[in-house]
């Protein structure tokens, strides 16, 4: 039925569609690649180190002669810096989001938003420099017992870095709340603050939670700030004033050295990567589902 010219056209269409489909499949292959690479080395690692040891040993010293492979100290370091970062980013980010969404005029928002995006665009290595060479010396004047490398200043700087993420994602969630809800509350004489806190915030809560979870995931995976400013001493402590080491910082530490390919030490970074991947994967998926559900409510 088709003329020759039409046939060529249709065939071209078919090829292009398949090509584009392959492009989108690449993302699936990336995930598969990540999982394969991480599990391949991790399995070899667990052949030599029992998983119970990995999860319960309280020391992490793969690079010493007396080797211990307990992930807990690294997890603890990651947890500590994340906690500090979140306690900076959440209040500041949320309040700023409420202000931008409920108080600020359209003009102010249009000026401020691109500016805060700059904060997110600054490379993390720059924040690392800032934490180590500016904030730590500054904090030392207040807390003399602070070590040169510590969880505190890297956590704070990390928190500052994720403020824009918290504030802009939360603001999006709040702005998705229908105007009608607000008008109802204003009509009975509520103040702006009451509307914000009692109407908008609860209505947007699942969207905001999704944003916060994403921020936590980001903090867990953040690398350069902690690699530069938090130290390289894995220890099981919640003291923010002493040097610690996070999972990510450990991977950097090993990558900088000349650890030969195929050794147990080399494999430790993949085990760490696996732990990190699983942690962030769970958080990311959880956040995605929450966000989807939130979008379904308000669409």
């Amino acid at each position: 039925m088709l003329s020759n010219k039409r046939f060529v056209l249709k065939f071209k269409e078919f090829l292009i569609e398949k090509l584009l489909f392959l492009c989108s499949l690449l993302s699936v292959f990336t995930t598969i690649g990540i999982i394969l690479v991480l599990s391949f080395e991790s399995i070899k690692f667990f052949k030599e180190v029992p998983i119970t040891k990995f999860l319960t040993d309280t020391q992490w010293t793969p690079l010493f002669i007396n080797k211990h492979f307990g992930i807990l100290p690294l997890l603890c370091g990651t947890f500590l810096t994340t906690l500090i970062a979140i306690s900076v980013a959440v209040p500041v980010g949320l309040i700023s989001a409420i202000y931008l969404s409920e108080y600020a005029s359209w003009r102010i928002r249009n000026i401020v938003k691109p500016l805060t995006e700059i904060l997110a665009a600054v490379p993390t290595v720059v924040y690392g420099y800032f934490a180590l060479l500016f904030l730590t010396p500054l904090l030392k004047k207040i807390i003399p017992s602070l070590s040169g490398f510590n969880a505190l200043s890297s956590g704070i700087v990390m928190g500052i870095m994720i403020i824009p993420m918290v504030s802009s994602l939360s603001e999006d969630a709040m702005r998705a709340v229908p105007m009608g809800l607000r008008e109802g509350a204003y009509a009975v004489g509520s103040s702006r603050l009451q509307v914000s806190l009692r109407v908008v915030l609860p209505a947007a809560s699942s969207g905001i939670t999704a944003a916060l979870i994403l921020a936590i995931s980001r903090a867990i995976g953040e690398t350069m700030i902690v690699a530069i400013a938090a130290g390289q001493q894995p220890r099981l402590t919640l003291n923010p004033l002493v040097p610690i080491e996070t999972i990510t910082a450990y991977i950097v530490q090993v990558s900088l050295g000349d650890t030969p390919h195929g050794t147990l030490e080399y494999r430790t970074i993949f085990v760490c990567g696996m732990t990190l991947f699983l942690l962030t994967f769970i958080l990311n998926i959880f956040s995605y589902k929450l966000k989807k559900r939130f979008q379904e409510i308000y669409e």
């Binding site: 990540i34 690479v37 995976g221 953040e222 990558s255 993949f270 990190l276 962030t280």
Partner: peptide, 28 residues
């Protein structure tokens, strides 16, 4: 749907994991 979730997750995977991926696949 699967591809979409997958991309959303990839956007949030820590960059250092990509480094490990590159080390495993491209370098080695």
């Amino acid at each position: 749907n699967f591809i979409e979730i997958n991309i959303a997750n990839l956007a949030g995977v820590p960059s250092i994991i990509y480094g490990l991926l590159g080390l495993g696949i491209f370098v080695r």
